[in-house]
Design a protein around this nucleic acid. Sequence first.
RNA 1: GCGGGCGUGGCGGAAUGGUAGACGCGCCAGCCUUAGGAGCUGGUAGGGUUCUCCCUGUGGAGGUUCAAAUCCUCUCGCCCGCACCA
Length: 837
Amino acid sequence: MDKYVPADIETKWQKVWEEERSFEAPDPETPGGADRSLKSYVLEMLPYPSGTLHMGHVKNYTMGDVIARFRARNGYTIFHPMGYDAFGLPAENAAIKTGLPPAELTKINTDNIKQQLHRLGVSIDWSRELATCDPEYYRWTQYFFLKFYERGLAYRKEAAVNWCPSCATVLANEQVVQGACERCGSAVETRNLAQWFLKITEYAERLLEDFELLQSWPERVITMQRNWIGRSEGAEVIFRVDDMDLDIPVFTTRPDTLFGATFFLLAPEHDLVIRLVEGTEFENPVHDYVTSSRLKPMVDRAMAEREKTGEFTGRYATNPVNGEKIPIWVSDYVLMEYGTGAIMAVPAHDQRDFEFARKFGIEVRVVVSGELESGEAVGVDAGATLETAFDEEGKMVNSGRFDGMAIREAGQAITEWLNGESLGQAAVSYRLRDWLVSRQRYWGAPIPIIYCDECGTVPVPEDQLPVLLPEVEDYAPKGKSPLATNEDFVNAICPKCGGPGRRETDTMDTFVDSSWYFLRYTDPRNDREPFDQAIVNYWMPVDQYIGGVEHAILHLMYARFFTKVLYDLDLVAFKEPFNNLFTQGMIYYQGAKMSKSKGNVVNPDEHVENYGADTLRLYILFMGPPELDVEWQDQGIEGTFRFLGRVWRLINEIIEKVEPTVFSDFANADEQAMKLVRKTNQTISKFTADVAERFRFNTAISAVMELVNEAYLAKDGLLASEEGRGVLRFTAESIVKLLDPFAPHVCAELWQRLGHNRLWNESWPQADERYLVDETYELVVQVNGKVRGRLRASRSAGKDELLAAALASEQVAKYTTGKNIVKEIVVPGRLVNLVVK
RNA sequence: GCGGGCGUGGCGGAAUGGUAGACGCGCCAGCCUUAGGAGCUGGUAGGGUUCUCCCUGUGGAGGUUCAAAUCCUCUCGCCCGCACCA
């Protein structure tokens, strides 16, 4: 018998798959009317080609491949494409370091990744490969930008935006993590810049509503998105500024507490701040306050524990419910981006307002009376003595005719009253902000806009797309896009008037590129439109999407938004792109996330070289449940390699010693042979359920390990008889068929040696019901819940029979003699429990 | 602070109310021996032991149940997300 040499086997079969184009999905013949029930679009998040694939990628792509191969064998037509999220900062930063243009560097990296995927044996339809930095791709990214623009969903405005000094570009809110840049970790600053935004806020409600369509998404991801969107119901209430012809609306979730508003606050960025203090004695201090809070880094401003600061404007606002005049202050705990940038402050019932009021000596007026958690009563007069804001349920007080109502009731009543008086109305507010998509960097899709002195902002006509990304001398970020220095690029003719114009020099956030790539796969070479609608509607939505949870908000929310806009544009017929989502856990090593800086990176290539792709694939899914974080163990992979060697030897020995024609039905098999027949069928059944229904690959694999172990033990005995040899062959073929999605190379080889042809075209094995269960089983007998005996029982035995057998057993008698049996529980197939006293 | 998750041998993990520790790693022993870091077989939660069993045991404390790793309450620890969002 030859030794198991993965390298030879793997290159052999990879070549076959390539030459026979085994995994190419056919274009649907009549896509519009075709039966879609047996298509399966299996997609893993596309890799960012920053260098080589790491273990996280291997896990991601192996899992996708197992699902794709498994479903293919179960009768599905598989759509399993691959591409590269090829625009983006790392390539550009590396280019600056090495001097190599980003395009070249990216090409090197994508070639490399393709090689790696190839060596892993992932069943990808390579005919659909795409890179988002290819002009044939970003042409359509630009096209969509223009479609958004036409609809008023892309707009440019000046705003206080997140600026990463190290990346030298602005960032979307989603890309700022605790005040720091999501990519590089530097503290994010605030700058006022004119930037392009996509109006994701307009879709906030639908992004929430359609969670209903995403039943199988991980709860965690939905919760994260829901929190991020941050929907709050409340009211918008108009306050009039005293002595000025000015109305300022505020948003509140607690209209019931309106009578308790004892002051009014504006965000420092609010336009009206300047007007309120203009020419008054308050002008200078307020100006100073506004200036200093603008300089404050985002990180500091976002700290809830910070002491409250503020300045009085000298102005008063009228509370619409009681006509009371309350002082208007400016404070930086009010955020311009949320609500209206102004709030009514109710110190008795809001902790932040409470802190502010105590610090500046403002009245705290209780309008909800109730009980603190400690049981202490909060009465009408508690304002002066409260130690913390009271935000529990309670009854209205100090609130005129609303007194005595429960707070919810009062909130509604007050809102209705405001509505009647045209002083306010019910309102909904979201935490979600519009998506800032312009980036002051080179390596991205240029925003297809021309500025003309005569015509203003003019979109580039569709027939002039793509706006090609030109080569530049210097990619180094200077706070402006490197494209701005390229005169040939910047100078353009206004498409409207033919006069001189200037191109927008910012490029798009790479998350725009990845918000629609899964659509392009369906029709990747279309040069007339982004995709054929009938084709995209055939393959989409993605049936199984797989990726890391780090994209729970970013990519997954953007892609959902994009899909909804395309739905509204009648370009696609579905509202959600990803029907099912699986978020894989991370792989740790030496107790930490793998990272170059920590020097604890496990290189997949090395393991492919040492043990082969099959071993690596098998191990990475054997390590634990795929959704959990797991720790890489160097010795673990050796065990998996040993297992494949064991399979190799077992099956080759069977091939050598069992004539291929021997394959009887198992009617004449003896008990020893039947045992293995049953075990094989049980394994088929368990394995299939684990893979198909639960993605529990680790337990599926261990089930095959058990079968292999049993086969070894039974082997020598079974080789002696013809029936036995038939059973061995059946078991051998089953093992190969089951392991195939995980270890496709070695299984393809063994299948061929077993005298067959192409394993990946075989159908999935079915367990034979007749051989699934043993006629007898081990019945556990418990006394008072403790296991006291085990006996063989017949499957067909009824409760009475089982009970009788249990009572008759000697082992049990020890614990029952001299005692009363109070209760008997009989669970056929499992146990008998006797309760004695 | 709010929301979510997790806690089981030396290690990764099985067990979705019914035999805790499947499977794998590691370790121990035996066999084989073209002597090998290979392969095959057996053992391996802790404690006790007459070697057959007995006791204890799933972060901790209570509870529900004939029966709890699993369900409920409280509590401790770790991880993740959000965090002055009115």
